[in-house]
């Protein structure tokens, strides 16, 4: 139950959605774009989100696209994670998605919702960061496409009125060797202590992490250290750990020191599995 009054809007096109947002805002209201809705409902209950209107983007055809083009995968932002898992266009993304919340919840949680969420794990963004994907964004000035690295830095950087329509991934990434692991405090459902995703492209390992810092990220510095093959493996990993952004999470899921312990082991396993020795 949302303990305040909201109106619900169901646009059928991108233009309609953007227009609605604009109109509502001009009426002095606070609209939110609405995907699966799970996070908005969760945080509303706790008064951590406020809004006067929600604009449900699930009925916009572009947001539901799931296309395997010859060179490109097109993933609509309003696709439920389980739809992506079952279609499995990008195995690393499937693995990342599969570890989010639980399956029933993932029937509702959407790709865009997970990437743009306030809850800071946003684990499905990891494969998209690694694959230098493109984000299709709609706003007042139309629909544009840009590199994920331009719009996602720790969290999505959208201007008011903009929303994520699609992610596009170069198909060559879908078949690259990859690694994905999520460790929790205990058990198989829940927030991560550490989630690591990696691919190997042109002999180089790319790595992105969630749960280590209060944001997901891909770090070029870490990748450089990990790929410094002239150094002993231990030094490469120690170097990568030193290159981590700050702060390291130290919270109810686990202490910072333990997270680094877990991460370090994952990095060893990652290099082992991806053959980066």
């Amino acid at each position: 139950m949302i303990p305040f009054e909201i109106t619900y809007h169901r646009p059928r096109s991108i233009e309609e959605a953007v227009h609605l947002f604009d109109t509502l805002q001009q009426q002095g209201k606070k609209p939110l774009y609405y995907g699966g809705g799970t996070e908005i409902i969760t945080l509303s209950r706790l008064h951590l989100v406020a809004a006067d209107a929600v604009i449900d983007i699930k009925h916009i055809p572009e947001c539901r696209t799931l296309e395997f083009n010859p060179h490109e995968l097109v993933l609509g932002s309003a696709l439920p994670l389980t739809t992506l898992e079952e279609a499995n266009p990008f195995p690393l993304l499937t693995k990342a998605a599969r570890e989010v919340a639980d399956r029933t919840a993932r029937n509702q949680i959407t790709l865009g919702g997970n990437i743009c969420g306030q809850i800071f794990y946003r684990e499905t963004v990891l494969p998209l960061l690694l694959s230098d994907s493109q984000a299709v964004i709609a706003g007042k000035d139309g629909v544009k496409q840009c590199s994920i690295h331009d719009v996602f830095l720790q969290h999505i950087r959208l201007k008011p009125g903009q929303f994520l329509v699609q992610m596009k991934v170069d198909r060559s990434y879908a078949s690259l060797p990859h690694f994905h692991r999520k460790r929790r405090k205990q058990g198989k459902v829940g927030y991560p202590l550490v989630t690591a995703a990696a691919i190997k492209k042109d002999g180089q390992i790319r790595v992105a992490l969630s749960g280590v810092c209060p944001f997901p990220f891909r770090s070029k510095e870490m990748e450089e250290r990990l790929n410094a093959r002239h150094l002993p493996l231990h030094d490469r990993i120690e170097g990568a750990i030193r290159a981590l952004p700050r702060p390291i999470l130290d919270d109810i899921e686990g202490s910072a020191a333990y997270r680094l312990f877990v991460l370090k082991q994952m990095l060893f396993d990652m290099i082992d599995e991806l053959g980066g020795e």
Binding site: K185, Q186, A257, Y258
Partner: peptide, 20 residues
């Protein structure tokens, strides 16, 4: 209790690695 992996890790390390 509870017996979470971090507890076991901490006990094996001798309880002293709480800070980084």
């Amino acid at each position: 209790l509870p017996l979470i992996p971090e507890l076991i890790w901490r006990k094996k390390k001798g309880d002293s690695h709480d800070s980084i």
